[in-house]
């Protein structure tokens, strides 16, 4: 009996430590980046001996070029994935497709294929296209966007199709019975109800494209890297502590974006419905 009480007390302690450790662990590297960005000694020594804003003033210009390039690629990927994905999800949710099980599997299949495999396959396939037809997708923004669309498409589809799950079809019928044309029903009833799903899917696509290293690493032009690729090579080859300052700025921007999003959307519902 006595042992029981002690062991359950010990268990509770261990659990509480584990519970507190998770948020601490998640925050720790951000703490590292921020402290290194203000530290005169840089990233390699921890309690910064002296504080400075030097690193913020000395972010090299090529990093801003890379940031602009990443933003534009993210916008392109998001646009293409939306144009392809929204009609596709409408067809999957509403249409009567011959072989719809096969098409469904095809559409979620990229989720089951590791990104590096998609990237390598795209890289070699693009080389083959270049050999056969002379149009080179490697070292080209179009190649990166196309391959990023492949692995972001399933997420957009899932997000949009999930918004059909709670869709009440009697709303459409009511509108039709009240004399609306099918086109009006689509724009006035269907679209407003699935817009949150579309927006969430677009957000996923943008984030994945903006953060992607692997596809841009294989398919991109080494002379014009995206920001994550440039940071990746910077950490492998020439470490410049200014990248901690840039990273701090990026983390801060995403934190603000997430804060604003959490005010307008229910984050948890957006992320966990599948």
């Amino acid at each position: 009996m006595r042992f029981d009480v002690v062991s359950s007390y010990a268990l509770r302690c261990v659990l509480n430590i584990a519970i507190c450790a998770v948020p601490l662990f998640l925050v720790l590297p951000f703490l590292g980046i921020v402290s290194a960005s203000f530290s005169r000694t840089g990233a390699l020594a921890f309690p910064p001996s002296d504080w400075t804003l030097h690193w913020y003033q000395s972010i090299p210009e090529p990093y801003f070029d890379a940031l602009r390039y990443s933003l534009s690629l993210g916008a392109w990927t998001t646009a293409v994935v939306t144009v392809l994905g929204v009609p596709l999800s409408l067809a999957l949710a509403r249409g009567r497709l011959p072989g719809s099980a096969a098409i469904n599997s095809l559409c979620i299949a990229p989720l089951g294929v590791p990104t590096i495999v998609i990237a390598v396959a795209g890289f070699k396939f693009a080389m083959w296209i270049a050999d056969s037809w002379g149009y080179d997708l490697n070292g080209n923004s179009a190649g990166i966007v196309l391959m990023q669309v492949v692995f972001t498409l399933p997420l957009l589809l899932r997000s949009v199709i999930a918004s059909f799950a709670h869709y009440d079809n009697t709303l459409d019928e009511a509108a039709l019975n009240l004399g609306a044309t099918p086109w009006q029903v689509f724009w006035r009833v269907t679209v407003p109800l699935i817009v949150p799903g579309i927006v969430a899917g677009m957000l996923f696509a943008f984030v994945l494209s903006f953060d992607d290293v692997v596809v841009a690493w294989f398919m991109g032009d080494p002379g014009e890297p995206t920001l994550p690729v440039k940071l990746f090579t910077a950490m492998e080859v020439e470490f410049d502590n200014a990248i901690t300052a840039l990273s701090t700025l990026i983390v801060a921007i995403w934190a603000v974006v997430l804060f604003l999003l959490s005010r307008f959307f229910q984050l948890e519902r957006m992320l966990t419905r599948r």
Binding site: P29, S35, V213, S247
Partner: peptide, 9 residues
């Protein structure tokens, strides 16, 4: 990449 960078300090 950025999160890995944060682990260095």
């Amino acid at each position: 990449v950025i999160r890995n960078l944060g682990w260095i300090p």
